[in-house]
Amino acid sequence: MTSLIETTDLTRILHEAVPVTLVRDVTLSIGEREFVAVTGPSGSGKSSLLYLLGLLDRPTAGTLKIRGRDAEPMSEKERAVTRLTNIGFVFQFHFLLPEFTARENVEIPMRKLARLTRAEMRERATGLLSSLGLEDHLHKRPDQLSGGQRQRVAVARALANDPPLILADEPTGSLDSKSSEQVFAILEALVNERGKTVVAVTHDLDMAARMHRRIHLVDGRISEEEGAKPGF
């Protein structure tokens, strides 16, 4: 099995008046079909690590390889294309574009990639949303949906271009327990049924316990890791 993401001594320091170390010397490897939880107390750098893995942020030191390719020498444009094709994001807040309907939001990454025809995109977006139980809400704008529904639209959007890697930043953090459970089940299904790799930042230890692998961060370092598949 090949690894999707490999990092060596990944470090991110914010150069403020007093330098803040967000992530320090993180070395890890994440393969396909993994369900990884990143846990840790607040301020431990979980989200920062996730942004680094998602190419939203550049590391201060260390290397990051995505599907064997070093991200360091990539241009801003290449990074954008890599995000578009290989990575789907789900944030704590749904982060949908407010002026577009649920289906249009899901179509946007596909249109940016422009690999399908418009009819195919529509079909795929409808299919994705329906598979997440949103077939009745295709034409609603985000402000007409509930929190759980929005988060499911966000998941559908993350899946739009069929990326192998889904990065989720507290995906259930702002949801009630019922919606949380629903979203968690969907993420779990992504791994088990669609063969995706999901890396989710969470502070919910119960939820983390139900995932395949847990990476625990303290002060930006990996303090504890369990459940890693043999061979990594």
Partner: peptide, 11 residues
């Protein structure tokens, strides 16, 4: 959001 989805700065 758009940048995280894979839009470039030029876009």
């Amino acid at each position: 959001i758009m940048k995280s989805l894979g839009f470039s700065e030029a876009d």
